[in-house]
Write a protein that binds this DNA or RNA. Structure first.
Length: 549
DNA sequence: GTAGGGTTAG
């Protein structure tokens, strides 16, 4: 036994049903509860989509074929309490109450419709006799973050209204939305407009621009923005250079990052972030010799390699499943007096868990504990993930329940992990209850919260719940991005809901998003099999418009 | 926004 066997002292708590803040979800829980309370084995159970899903949901029978005991089931996981000790408990999270904002709703309704151009949005708004909403503009940017036509149309219209002026933050949002939509000419025009306004551009704006360019593979243009950064009134300092390096590395071109580094390193004093960003980039690109060269250069420059530098190497060796090398880096760190932290341990535990038995992963858990390092929410999320993947759902649930008691507040990552695992196992009620709990915890969901839920709804043909989730997304200002549309189109296609699949495909294209050809092919092929000729023609018309533009 | 999302949209 490698780990000290302790009694798993995690008390499962019952969670009394609390009133929901969002009516839609509440309505659906009522339906689910009725299903559980009634005899669910009867064919006339009041399932929300009963006509389409005659099978009893697995969460009712509580049987999960995928959660069979694994070979590591004899391992007892030490409780978080035995580690964290008497850490003060977090206060109960405030409830996510928000009154419906009428103005926001009105604008959302208008902007949600598909438009062919921002000018069309402006025309519609001009005919509406509406005035610019006073408080909810920032929420509109979030809601339409993936729809540059609506957002930009609203931006232009609002700017033309008497007495209204966009603040620098709105400009910054708009620049980012245009960058995300890859409308770089418009993005640069807006940046120039901000420049004329004086004081509207800051480093944050510039980094956003560089990130969007790098994400689109426009590396040279990103570097050019940095070259001209002073023309935008932003200081050409190490913060800006590090922003550029990070943008290029995140855009998957450590080569361009290195070029930029060589071009500008003489102009300013570098810091450890500059070197670490490059080390990370080379490690991610599996160019470990280059990463080592940078580490050497870092030392020669007078910057001491730190936990971040070493962790990049550890991550690279973890990716190669070379755990001997991981151990040798840990030894080197120890010799240098550089203690691994929660990030280092999370990476190793996660890789161990993914590559084989949970046993090795749990050794990392023990190692970290012996080092006196406290777990954080990311560490716990990782632990929950690997436990579930190893079939130990109950242990994963207990870690989740224990987090709050130990003062480790679950974050959106923790909830996303729990929700996606529940969805993978088709535990519908559990997944939705987690979303509800997230809301009660004032933990804002993001696009990754909804994707597995939407996928599950398609798989189970729960069209009503799917629509509830889509409104829930909107209420939480999470816009449907390209990949989420793909989940919808794919999912609906696979479950035979072809009309809905076509509708979402159309919506996506009309919003200016360009789907991968594989998605179009899958949809068209499925439609052809069903002889839906008109729909096929519609798809082809839509796509020819896209290529024509 | 210097390192840790299972995140593949498939």
């Amino acid at each position: 036994m490698l780990l000290k066997a302790r009694t798993l002292n995690l008390i499962s708590r019952s969670h009394p049903q609390r009133a929901l803040n969002v009516n839609h979800l509440s309505h659906y829980f009522a339906l689910f509860t009725t299903t559980i309370a009634g005899n669910t084995k009867q064919s006339d159970s009041p399932d929300p989509d009963s006509s389409e899903s005659p099978d009893i949901p697995s969460w009712v029978t509580n049987q999960n074929p995928e959660s069979q005991p694994s070979e590591d089931d004899d391992f007892v996981i030490p409780s978080l309490a035995s580690w964290v000790g008497n850490h003060p408990k977090v206060k109960p999270f405030a409830s996510a109450t928000e009154k419906p904002q009428t103005q926001l709703d009105i604008f959302t309704q208008i902007l949600k419709k598909p438009y062919s151009s921002p000018e069309e949005v402006v025309d519609t708004l001009n005919r509406s006799s509406l005035s610019v909403p006073s408080v909810s503009v920032n929420r509109l940017w979030k809601r339409f973050h993936d729809c540059w036509i609506s957002a930009y149309g609203f931006f232009i219209w609002a700017k033309e209204q008497t007495g209204y002026k966009h603040d620098p933050q709105s400009y910054s949002f708009m620049v980012d939305i245009l960058g995300k939509g890859r409308k770089f000419d418009l993005m640069f025009d807006l940046l120039e407009e901000m420049n004329q306004l004086k004081g509207y551009i800051n480093l944050y704006t510039i980094v956003k621009v560089m990130r969007r360019l790098a994400r689109a593979g426009r590396f040279s243009e990103a570097i050019e923005v940095f070259r001209r950064v002073e023309e935008y009134g932003v200081e050409k300092d190490i913060m800006a250079l590090n922003g550029l390096l990070d943008a290029l590395v995140k855009g998957d071109s450590v080569e361009h990052a290195h070029e930029a580094f060589l071009e500008f390193k003489e102009c300013m004093t570098l810091n450890s972030s500059s070197f670490n960003t490059l080390i990370h980039g080379f490690c991610k690109a599996r160019k470990l010799d280059d990463a080592r060269k940078i580490l050497k250069e870092m030392k020669e420059y007078g910057c001491q390699p730190c936990v971040v530098s070493y962790t990049c190497f550890i991550e690279a060796y973890c990716r190669e499943k070379d755990f001997e090398k991981v151990d040798s880096v840990l030894d080197e760190m120890k010799k240098k007096g550089c203690t691994p932290n929660a990030v280092t341990y999370t990476i190793i535990m996660h890789a161990r868990g993914k590559s084989g038995t949970i046993r090795k992963a749990l050794e990392v858990y023990e190692m970290m504990k012996n080092d006196g390092r406290l777990p954080d929410s990311s560490f716990c999320s990782s632990l929950i993930f690997i436990l579930s993947k190893g079939g130990r759902l109950k242990d994963a649930d207990e870690i989740f329940e224990d987090m709050e008691k130990q003062g480790i507040k679950p974050t959106v990552l923790t909830y996303n992990t729990m929700i996606s695992l529940a969805c993978e196992h088709s535990l519908e009620e559990k997944a939705l209850k987690l979303l509800q709990r997230m809301e009660e915890d004032s933990c804002k969901p993001n696009v990754f919260t909804y994707k597995p839920l939407l996928r599950m709804c398609c798989r189970k043909k729960r069209m009503k719940v799917l629509n509830v989730l889509l409104s829930h997304m909107l209420n939480n200002d999470v816009s449907i991005d390209l990949s989420t549309y793909c989940v919808l189109v794919h999912g609906l296609c696979s479950c035979g809901k072809l009309e809905q699949a076509v509708a979402y495909f159309e919506e996506m294209v009309l919003k200016g998003m360009i789907p991968l050809d594989s998605l179009r092919k899958k949809l068209v092929e499925t439609l052809e099999k069903e002889n839906m000729t008109e729909a096929v023609e519609k798809i082809q018309r839509l796509m020819s418009n896209v290529t024509a533009k």
